[in-house]
Write a protein that binds this DNA or RNA. Structure first.
Length: 428
RNA sequence: GCGAGAUUAGUAUAAUGGUAGUACAUUUGCUUCCCAAGCAAGGGGCACGAGUUCGAUUCUCGUAUCUCGCACCA
């Protein structure tokens, strides 16, 4: 477990411009969150890191970006129209709610009364909409509840374009939507969220080694995110809890302030999805090993990463409180490659034009080189340090009177608070 | 979606059926000011809607959102 309180993170995230409640000015909308300037940068840093690591740096991975709206047949074939729709019933006596298909509706399982169970109501987790001007059965579509189907539906396209050797993967990042009954716990469970998914296609007899490969890759990813090893836990999901398509699933869980919860999942999906498409679309999803007659529908290993859950784990891992001169100091110990602001540049005094002018010069040069550099001349120097600590800026550069003489600046470290003097040429 | 509780400034919190206070943050100015220093001045708030009342931030009802429990989480 962690000592970090979720409320502290939620407050800081709002106060400092990371994450705001969705539709805040109109009183909010349950299950939605908006990202502020620092939040979107942090989120993009995480997503870009993922793309670099799993797509750019590999030679067996192909990226795609499929449409969120898809033909309704996709969701019929995938099982989502049936299985994402739960018939719910309610007991008029004790107000208990149950899955109509899981209980004997003649008698309430909670209060034991008979004849109190009402009519079943359909509740579908998918957001339904209509595509085109006519709202009828044919025009029904859904906001995708997972990004995976956008990969499976493009499997044949990618194979036709590149015909890669097995094993190979298709990767995608994008939004997904689920009409959760009860969104909770900050960005952990929301109605609109972002996934980073890979479908890794393998020979049916070689799924186990690919699975192990991805277990290792997931762990490496957690290291790159800076998550402490002892806060990440590997859970072998028993058959009874696995999704209908999976023959093996590992959940990686994280010690969030709300408890130990799923950070990401790694599932062996067999050929469930491609076979569905093969059977329903009339198109062959079979793969032939080059130069052989070995022909089959590939099996799939699916590492599925939730962006928000990764981001929340990063924030929880980074959030640190310690004492300095008897005062509480809060800082985000973000890995440098994730920090939304890399450097902050300040003049020691903002009412000395010569200091401000020199600091502006350094700021411009650094911004041109590093991009995410912030200017801060507010209040006194101590306040600036604390403010930068809270948003996780690794280094603060200060221009003082000595800079004007020998062109050296002070570099102050976020984690140690130590300062060193370097020439401005060294940091620009 | 059910049950309970909550909602006061950017954040954290007081009080009140009769002009809403504090801390931090924020803005402006002064100070050769390196870890939330000091001084001076300023801006900003009762979630939304209806009702009761001479008057509602306060009481009542509804809505939204949040928290906790239940349920849900292919």
């Amino acid at each position: 477990m962690t000592d970090v309180k979720l409320d502290d993170i939620v407050s800081l995230a709002k106060r400092r411009g990371f994450i705001y409640p969705g539709s805040d000015v109109y009183g909010g909308l349950s299950g939605t969150w908006d990202y502020g300037p620092l939040g979107v940068q942090l989120k993009r840093n995480i997503m870009n890191l993922w793309w670099t690591m799993f797509v750019d740096e590999r030679d067996d991975m192909y990226g795609v970006d499929a449409a969120i709206l898809m033909n309704q047949k996709v969701w019929q074939a995938s099982g989502h129209v049936d299985t994402f729709t739960d018939p719910l019933v309610e007991c008029s006596n004790c107000k208990g709610r149950f899955r109509a298909d899981k209980i004997d509706t003649s008698k309430c399982p909670t209060c034991g009364k008979t004849g109190t169970i009402g009519e079943a109501k359909q509740f579908n987790m998918m957001f339904q909409t209509n595509v085109g001007p006519v709202a009828d059965e044919k025009s029904v579509s859904y906001l995708r509840p997972e990004t995976a189907q956008g990969i499976f539906t493009n499997y044949k396209n990618v194979v036709d374009s590149f015909y890669p050797d097995l094993p190979f993967g298709i990767a995608q990042q994008g939004k997904a939507f689920r009409n959760e009954i009860s969104p909770r716990d900050f960005i952990f469970r929301s109605r609109e969220f972002e996934q980073m998914e890979i479908e890794y296609f393998v020979h049916p007899e070689k799924w186990e080694e690919a699975f192990e490969h991805w277990v290792g890759q997931c762990k490496e990813w957690f290291t790159v995110l800076g998550l402490p090893e002892d806060m990440v836990h590997e859970l072998e999901v028993p058959a009874s809890d696995r999704a209908h398509y999976s023959k093996r699933t590992i959940d990686f869980e994280f010690d969030y302030p709300i408890g130990r919860e799923e950070l990401m999942g790694l599932a062996y999906r067999t050929d469930f999805d491609l076979k569905n498409i093969h059977d329903n679309s009339g198109k062959s999803m079979e793969y032939t090993i080059k130069g052989t007659n070995d022909k089959f529908i590939p099996h799939v290993i699916e590492p599925s990463f939730g962006v928000e859950r990764a981001l929340m784990a990063v924030l929880v891992s980074a959030y640190t409180e310690d004492e300095q001169n008897g005062e509480k100091r809060i800082y985000l110990k973000l890995p440098e490659h994730l920090a939304p602001v890399k450097f902050c540049v300040s003049p020691l005094l903002k009412n000395k034009p010569e200091l401000v002018e020199k600091a502006r010069e350094v700021y411009k040069a650094m911004k041109a080189k590093h991009g995410n550099v912030m200017w801060d001349d507010n209040g006194n120097i101590g306040k600036r340090y604390r403010r930068q600590d809270e948003i996780g800026t690794p280094k603060c550069i200060v221009i003082d009177f000595q800079t004007l003489e020998d062109d050296t600046v002070t570099v102050r470290d976020r984690d140690t608070t130590e300062q060193t003097r370097v020439t401005s040429a060294e940091i620009v």
